[in-house]
Design a protein around this nucleic acid. Structure first.
Length: 238
DNA sequence: GCATTAATTGGTC
DNA sequence: GACCAATTAATGC
């Protein structure tokens, strides 16, 4: 089944993780010890919309999507997360319940620090606080860019943009994206419907801009794909 | 192999 | 460009 095992912060490979980067001092050890790590099967939700906020989550190893449910049950994927990244930061310290849910896109190990531990850490470790501040600022910028994109880009441009984003963020092997998503998930991230995504993907394939092997999708003509959205050069790696 | 889920296609508003 | 319905492909059990 899965070979995922829990590691300590000391042996963790996520050098970009804010905890790993800033909390390996002797003084911080008492906080690190209170970390809770757990395993999530693919498809399993580990943050549920409406549930009380319980600190911050970090992806130790794996991939997850963060989803917000709209009016008529339509979902909007807010972000994708991979190793070392933070989830649940918007509800943290502000709301008492989550307005998003998070689900593992593959077998994933997740780390969690409770509200109490997290707040104590932020008070005690200025380097962590500083980096968290920068992180929040970048996230705000990213989120505003996303709103603009959905408002101004056509559906085709949004789908192309999504594929380019997945490629930037998760990379590719053998010209196939490392993150495999359903048509519905691509739609939920692009802000459109599954049917539109299916039609646009088959058009892009016919035009030779993308390719596919089985269910996997790959970008065949990177420059042409970028040209598709070149009028919208908010290239903020959002 | 059967049953549920995902993908596709065509049509309507 | 969204929503709905019908068909087909893929996948889980």
């Amino acid at each position: 089944m899965s070979t995922l095992t829990s590691v300590t912060c000391n042996t963790c490979l996520n050098e970009a993780c804010l905890i790993k980067k800033n909390c390996l001092t002797a003084e911080a050890e008492k906080f690190i010890k209170q970390r809770i790590a757990f395993f999530c099967k693919k498809g399993q939700q580990f943050i549920i919309e409406g549930a009380p906020v319980q600190g911050l989550f970090f992806i130790q190893k794996g991939k997850a999507k963060v989803v917000q449910t709209g009016i008529n049950g339509r979902e909007q994927i807010v972000r994708f997360s991979k190793d070392g990244e933070i989830i649940g930061h918007r509800g943290f310290a502000v709301g008492d319940q989550y307005h998003i849910s998070a689900e593992a896109l593959e077998d994933t190990m997740v780390c969690n620090f409770s509200n109490r531990v997290m707040l104590e850490m932020l008070k005690d470790i200025p380097e962590l606080t500083y980096e968290m501040m920068l992180f929040y600022a970048r996230e705000l910028n990213r989120s505003e860019t996303k709103v603009r994109k959905i408002a101004q880009m056509t559906v085709r441009e949004r789908v192309v943009d999504t594929l380019l984003y997945i490629d930037r963020k998760f990379g590719h092997t053998n010209q196939l994206l490392n993150l495999q998503l359903s048509r519905q998930e691509i739609a939920d991230f692009s802000g459109t419907t599954e049917e539109q995504v299916i039609r646009i993907l088959s058009m892009l394939k016919k035009e030779g801009l993308i390719r596919s092997v089985g269910k996997k999708i790959g970008i065949a003509e990177l420059q042409k794909m970028k040209n598709e959205i070149s009028e919208h050069n908010y290239y903020l790696a959002s």
